[in-house]
């Protein structure tokens, strides 16, 4: 278990405040892949400033769930409202939501033909119409924040996995999103690199960012999350604050899952 990230640093909770404002509202949402019912009756409300960790066995639909929030996947029934905008077939709404919601992928998905700096400035310039110089300043600011400003002129292929993932986080931040989604951000990384990415995510949490993370890093969940959501077979089985969730799980399925991942 990597509790390292949590243990080694004192987390500054002063700005980690949860407001009453609703950031994401998912109600009675269902999704099918063909005839396979991947997400079943999902109801979930995320307030601004919340840090939610979603965990569960593979195939439980946790990635699909957060991919629905910026419509990389389409849901077939129910409602998803992000920042007051309902996700439907309307392309304008989708683009609006996507420019407000940052996403970090398991495999980084940096653009290999562009330099690190260009990766970070592309969307601000072309979507937000920010002047190039301003976009570059913002990009350098966030690259400094993820601690790799010196790599700005390199290409993604020249960076290590951990560095690439930090660039991917910086790239999302350059769009000044109000919500960040993380889809197993550390699963493709070597153990040595997991910490640097988690540190970046923790500092983001400290600034009060609304975050939804699909991750198996339980140390991160305990240190940062204010809520842990456990999913199995496309349903939300249990959700609770981390302390209760880990020490006193209610459902049998959760207990089994926790014993398997914490047991070694």
């Amino acid at each position: 278990m990597s509790d390292a990230a949590a243990a080694e640093r004192n987390i500054d909770t002063s700005k980690m405040q949860i407001s009453d404002e609703i950031a994401i509202q998912i109600s009675a949402m269902n999704k099918w892949y063909g005839s396979f019912h991947v997400l079943r009756d999902i109801n979930m409300t995320v307030n601004r400033g919340e840090r939610i960790v979603i965990c569960g066995p593979s195939g439980s639909g946790k990635s699909t769930l957060i991919r629905c929030i910026n419509r990389l996947e389409e849901h077939q029934a129910g409602q998803i409202i992000v920042d007051g905008t309902e996700l439907s077939g309307d392309l304008k709404n989708i683009d609006k939501v996507r420019s407000e919601v940052g996403m970090v992928f398991q495999h980084f998905n940096l653009f290999p033909h562009l330099t690190i700096l260009e990766n970070c400035t592309l969307a601000p310039i072309w979507v937000r119409k920010v002047p190039k110089r301003e976009a570059e300043e913002t990009a350098m600011h966030f690259l400094e924040k993820v601690k790799i400003p010196e790599q700005a002129d390199k290409y993604p292929g020249q960076l290590s996995g951990g560095q690439q993932q930090r660039v991917a986080i910086a790239r999302s931040l350059c769009m000044k999103p109000r919500i960040m989604l993380f889809d197993e951000p550390t699963s493709a990384l070597d153990p040595e690199m997991i910490k640097e990415v988690l540190d970046t995510m923790i500092s983001l949490a400290e600034e009060g960012m609304t975050m939804l993370c699909v991750t198996h890093e339980m140390g991160f969940a305990q240190a940062v999350a204010n809520r842990v959501v456990f999913m199995d077979q496309g349903q939300i089985v249990e959700q609770n604050e981390p302390k209760e969730f880990f020490n006193n799980p209610k459902s049998e399925r959760t207990k089994l899952f926790l014993s398997q991942i914490l047991g070694h």
């Binding site: 420019s99 940052g102 996403m103 992928f105 653009f111 592309l122 969307a123 979507v127 999302s172």
Partner: peptide, 15 residues
Amino acid sequence: LPKGQYEAADALGLD
């Protein structure tokens, strides 16, 4: 091209 490239472009709000 890996599907991730399309997804990353979508997720950034590029049309």
